[in-house]
């Protein structure tokens, strides 16, 4: 499998350790990644709201780059996934829009033809590689109680993205179960983390996050697992803001799925990733660094 990795600005420039975890696990599943001079996807809410034509054309440029290189795109960020998928949907379903966009692309020597596919890394892991293969690669099952947050932009609009059930998603649950975790069902599982309005109105954004995390905390989780860097920042950095703003005492470690997968696979260098986290989960660090024999006892294979 060969993909152009679309890490997205948030991962590549703010959370490079997440990118690291993706590049760490990729070879183990025969995923070959290439890098292309992508711009921002662009961000699906603000940029599209500011100028939907700019949004569509920049998206088309990114798609055209992958098309030129003859590879499909694998996104690591839910926002990029939604943005590029929606651009592709608009371009493929409205020939007049495609024509307009290609007029602009022609100026920069590019053309969008409509041959490229946009995948999210969750789809690649779940659909192409499969739960069984992931389980086979798990060396040190991590048996913690997790709440998962799939992220708005992996789920909706369901009929375009087609990644999981938008109301009752189960695929990320299956993925975390594959590495030994218990996935806790909780209220407001498909609710937004509030990141979309963080730049517009902090009270609203963190108010939404408070609602979401209150629901999460009801089931007493040990970790949260996400598949979107924006949601990651929301939960990881945002919980401290919520604690200040609303007098809460959240202390919930947050992981991007491939980080915790890399840990469960026992890959070298995982410590350097996990040390970047602001909310530390000491048990996990210990687990990876030292307690290998105990784990071996726990797993027959």
């Amino acid at each position: 499998m060969r993909f152009a990795l679309f890490p997205g600005c948030t991962i590549s420039d703010r959370l490079p350790f997440i990118e690291k975890s993706i590049r760490m696990i990729a070879p183990h599943f025969n995923i070959e990644l290439i890098d292309l001079p992508f711009t921002c996807c662009p961000e699906p809410n603000s940029v599209r709201s500011f100028s939907d034509k700019t949004w569509l054309t920049m998206g088309a440029r990114n798609l055209a780059l992958a098309e030129e290189a003859g590879v499909n795109i694998m996104t690591a960020c839910a926002g990029c996934f939604e943005s590029l998928s929606m651009s592709k949907h608009v371009l493929d379903s409205k020939p007049s829009e495609k024509e307009e966009v290609n007029k602009v692309l022609k100026k920069i020597g590019k053309e969008y033809k409509g041959q490229v596919e946009v995948r999210h890394i969750q789809q690649v892991l779940y659909e192409d590689i499969g739960i069984e293969e992931i389980q086979r690669n798990v060396q040190y099952p991590i048996n913690y109680r997790a709440v998962i947050h799939p992220g708005c932009h992996t789920l909706r609009p369901q009929k375009i993205l087609n990644l999981d059930d938008a109301e009752a998603p189960m695929k990320l649950d299956e993925l975390v179960r594959a590495i030994g975790m218990e996935s806790l069902d909780y209220m407001d599982k498909v609710m937004c983390c509030g990141a979309g309005v963080r730049g517009i109105n902090r009270e609203i954004a963190f108010g939404v996050l408070r609602e979401k995390m209150d629901s999460m905390m009801m089931v007493d989780p040990e970790v949260a697992v996400v598949f979107c860097p924006t949601c990651f920042i929301s939960f990881e950095a945002g919980q401290k803001v919520v604690n200040r703003m609303f007098d809460k005492k959240y202390n919930l470690p947050v992981y991007y799925y491939t980080e915790i997968l890399a840990a469960a696979m026992g890959l070298e260098g995982v410590e350097s990733i996990l040390s970047e986290h602001r909310v530390k989960f000491s048990a996990l660090g210990m687990l990876v660094a030292k307690n290998e024999p105990e784990i071996e006892n726990a797993t027959p294979h």
Partner: peptide, 11 residues
């Protein structure tokens, strides 16, 4: 501009 574009309503 308060809309977070979570697409829940549309879905």
């Amino acid at each position: 501009w308060f809309c977070a574009y979570c697409l829940m309503c549309e879905e």
